[in-house]
């Protein structure tokens, strides 16, 4: 099963397996991963599921849509031009069987 590795600021790590088709945001909410809020329910509307994707996975991600691009300019923690994504737009599947992300210290 695909998995997401969440790295936290305090050096703790959550490793969570989840089925194909699940977004990184939903994986976090369903499995009590701290630091991801997902206030809008995955509509790319609130920028509270911001993550920094680690190098090595970036080229496997879908293109950033116009909606996501605009929301990434409004994140609580600073945007990283190459690594910042919204967790609701990063979906596990055959092209992304594993992804490692750093969770920002603030989302709201």
């Amino acid at each position: 099963m695909p998995k997401v590795i969440f790295h936290h600021d305090n050096d703790e790590t959550d490793v969570v397996e989840s089925p194909d088709g699940t977004s990184v945001m939903k994986v976090a909410l369903q499995n009590d991963v701290a630091g991801i809020v997902g206030e809008c329910g995955g509509q790319a509307m609130c920028a509270t599921c911001h993550v920094y994707v680690r190098d090595g996975y970036l080229d496997r991600l879908p293109e950033i849509s116009e909606d996501e691009e605009e929301m990434l300019e409004c994140t609580a923690a600073p945007r990283d031009e190459t690594r910042s994504r919204l967790g609701c737009q990063v979906v596990l599947g055959p092209d992304l069987e594993e992804v490692e992300v750093d969770v920002p210290t603030s989302q709201v």
Partner: peptide, 12 residues
């Protein structure tokens, strides 16, 4: 997927 999106996980 019929699972609703939780507001928070149960451990929270």
């Amino acid at each position: 997927d019929a699972e609703p999106l939780p507001l928070r996980g149960m451990q929270f």
